[in-house]
Design a protein around this nucleic acid. Structure first.
Length: 682
DNA sequence: CTGTCGTTTATTTTT
DNA sequence: TAAACGACAG
């Protein structure tokens, strides 16, 4: 028992012990938020609450896994006899928890329990097809914009029948939205939003079902509450309604996903929702030096709307923050690497460094410099493993096998590799499917019987039939079979041999091997269960990572490759590069923030709207507070952007840091080249 | 149906 | 800059 409170400060202990009733914890960066959460779960269990009565909700799988692991560690210390397997708390993401509920309850909405999850590419595919059917010109109305609006409506629980469009664009959206939703349902597919929204819908329409879950989860914890959207807020509210043992933790100052519909009001209004809520502030920072913390506070104090709080730390003042003006992005990269080399001789290790930037595009110049200098690095984020073409191709085949109604996946594979089937034939198949209410695969078979067809169609039908009959073989065998039967490697060779710019064919084959490694876990499952579970896992695990490759490895290959979204556990002896967004929740001894320019950070698109500007400032706050020991901020006077060179002023955020933590150096390093000289003369 | 060529358009993104 | 998409000729 004593162990549970060991190493916690008074406020943290208060938060851990407040078992009954609603609790709001505002936790500043580096104030031990995860610690607080995990100790609370352990404490609940030590007080005799059954683990299965506890529901912990996070936003990322990473966070969920970390909490899980740490809770188990604590519990082992607390109670060696606890049989964890027999009773574990439910810890997961919003999406994974809803998925579980839906697998059981979704039939009340008329969907089948074996629904598949559509990722954003799939969604765009559906929207485009719907727009085609409705004869809406995709040039006049950007499908992605329409999809974004649909997603926004869904998140706010505005269903197609309830949506009252007021302007011209909304009227178009309304038409697409309704049909989009019907199409999804016809394919027995749910998009990411549906996972949450439909769960809420079921709960609202079926009080008995809701009550069942209310009685299961009597103690609810929500992490990163400032990032919840309206539907997530509704879900939490409904579940907590009966027992009101709701513990939410977050930091309004770190809300950076407003653009994705996170609603900061959820955390700001918590006390209005629950007037008897206990409110606890975690203001002691254990992470950063006084200088770093002061800079962060000064920047964020320029925001109008925020919960007032006073962060403090017992840590040293540390060194002053270094601000560096570079000539251009190459010079900036040179400065970063020069500094890192310098710090390495002072005993810092390569994995002590993180380079943060506002946009992915900025990684390029830095990567090039890192490669030249032989610095191993890893980019976190970017294109995700499961969004890669070759992976999506394989998954599309599996999806068609698993759900023959999945027209979107069928669309991807019907002519892949090219087998002489064109879009008109595809359209015909879809028509047959729609009029006869049969699956795409069945429609294909019907199409065959019709008029004389090319050999391609027959080949495809045979392939799908083959695959279907192999449903119950080991998953890895099935994938290998697909690769073999489609001559996929030849296809890759034919398609990519000339473009040296994209991933090499070898890379892509490696990626498929990586996929096989992941699939292997499910080999033991029988009767095609492996496919469904595998696809589900992938749908909810968008950030999975192939084996990281160092820049040294990469150096030997030509062209730009792509280096996997990050599983930070795998990072050793690498500098990590990532966007400020991806850095949330992480910490590093040395942090570089590159591209601190007006128009880039804050981003030009945010300058018109004060709300968006405040979000940029919070993002800057997040970036600054990642640093433990040293922070380096740089900006470039000139930057190549979309092909042309632009001159930018230093970011206003730099001006918002007080003079006493700054140490500005403006001398140019010796990294600029002839090209740069030309720019100087300009 | 397929490949090529010009046009267009560029944030951030836990799932 | 470069990648993604649509138009069009073969």
């Amino acid at each position: 028992m004593d162990n549970i409170f060991q190493g916690l400060n008074d406020k943290q202990i208060e938060a851990v012990r407040a078992i009954e009733g609603p609790v709001l914890v505002i936790s500043g960066p580096g104030s031990g938020k995860t610690r607080c959460l995990t100790h609370r779960v352990a404490y609940l269990i030590s007080q005799g609450i059954r683990p299965c009565e506890i529901l912990g909700i996070t936003f990322t799988n990473k966070a969920a896994n970390e909490i899980k692991e740490r809770v188990y560690n604590l519990l082992k210390i607390e109670n060696r006899n606890l049989k964890i397997a027999s009773a574990t708390p439910m810890l997961g993401t919003f999406h994974s928890i809803c998925l579980r509920i839906l697998r059981r309850e979704i039939p009340v909405l008329g969907y089948g329990s074996n629904f598949t999850i559509f990722d954003s590419d799939d969604q765009t595919g559906v929207v485009k097809r719907v727009m085609g059917d409705l004869e809406i010109d995709p040039k006049k109305f950007n499908p992605r914009a329409i999809l974004a609006k649909i997603s926004r409506l869904k998140t706010n629980l505005i269903f197609p029948e309830k949506f009252e469009p007021d302007d011209f664009f909304s009227k178009v959206v309304a038409r697409v939205y309704g049909k989009y939703q019907t199409e999804l349902k016809k394919m027995n597919g749910l998009d990411f939003d549906d996972l949450i929204v439909l769960t809420v819908k079921i709960f609202k329409q079926n009080p008995d079902i809701l009550e069942k879950y209310q009685n299961v989860w009597k103690y609810i914890l929500v992490d990163e509450y400032q990032d919840t959207s309206h539907d997530q807020y509704q879900l939490v509210t409904l579940l907590a309604q009966k027992h009101k043992n709701l513990f939410v933790i977050g930091d309004d100052a770190q809300s950076i996903y407003m653009f994705r519909d996170a609603d900061i009001k959820n955390i700001l209004n918590f006390q209005k929702d629950y007037p008897d809520a206990k409110v606890i502030f975690l203001e002691q920072n254990y992470r950063s030096t006084k200088n770093i913390l002061a800079a962060a506070q000064n920047v964020i104090s320029n925001n109008q709307s925020q919960v007032p709080k006073e962060l403090w730390t017992e840590n040293d003042h540390g060194e002053k923050i270094l601000i560096r003006e570079a000539l251009n992005e190459r010079d900036e990269a040179g400065f970063i690497i020069e500094t890192m080399e310098d710090l390495t001789t002072q005993g810092y290790k390569i994995n002590d460094f993180a380079i943060l930037y506002r946009t992915h595009a900025q990684s390029r110049a830095i990567e090039e410099a890192l490669i030249t200098r032989g610095f191993p690095y890893q980019i976190v984020g970017g294109i995700k493993f499961y969004e890669r073409r070759e992976i999506k191709d394989m998954l599309a085949y599996l999806k068609v096998v698993s759900n023959p109604s999945d027209v979107v996946s069928f669309e991807r594979i019907y002519n892949l590799p090219p087998r002489g089937i064109g879009s008109s034939t595809f359209q015909k198949i879809v028509k047959t499917e729609e009029t006869n209410l049969i699956s795409a695969v069945a429609a294909l078979a019907a199409e065959m019987k019709g008029s004389r067809q090319g050999p391609g169609l027959e080949e495809l039908a045979k392939l799908l039939k083959d695959l279907n009959s192999k449903k119950s073989v080991k998953l890895t065998e099935l994938i290998k079979y697909i690769v073999r039967k489609t001559n996929y490697e030849d296809y890759l060779l034919n398609t990519f041999k000339k473009s040296g710019v994209a991933d090499t064919v070898q890379d892509r084959i490696e990626n498929i091997k990586e996929l096989l490694t992941v699939a292997k876990k499910h080999d033991s499952l029988k009767n095609g269960d492996g496919i469904a579970i595998f696809l589900e896992e992938i749908a909810l695990l968008q950030d999975a990572d192939p084996t990281p490759i160092s820049s040294a490895d990469r150096h030997s290959e030509k062209g730009r490759g792509w280096y996997g979204a990050g599983n930070l556990k795998n990072i050793n002896n690498r500098v990590v590069l990532m966007t400020a967004h991806s850095s949330k929740g992480l910490e590093f001894p040395i942090v570089f923030i590159a591209g601190m320019e007006e128009g880039l950070f804050p981003h030009s698109r945010s300058l018109i709207d004060p709300k968006e500007l405040e979000e940029e400032r919070r993002l800057c706050y997040v970036a600054i507070t990642r640093a433990k020991k040293k922070l380096h901020i740089s900006y470039a006077k000139y930057r190549h952007i979309f092909g042309s060179t632009e001159a930018n002023l230093p970011s206003r955020f730099i001006g918002e840091m007080p003079g006493n933590v700054l140490d500005v150096r403006t001398s140019m390093s010796n990294f600029y080249t002839d090209d740069d000289e030309k720019i100087i003369k300009y």
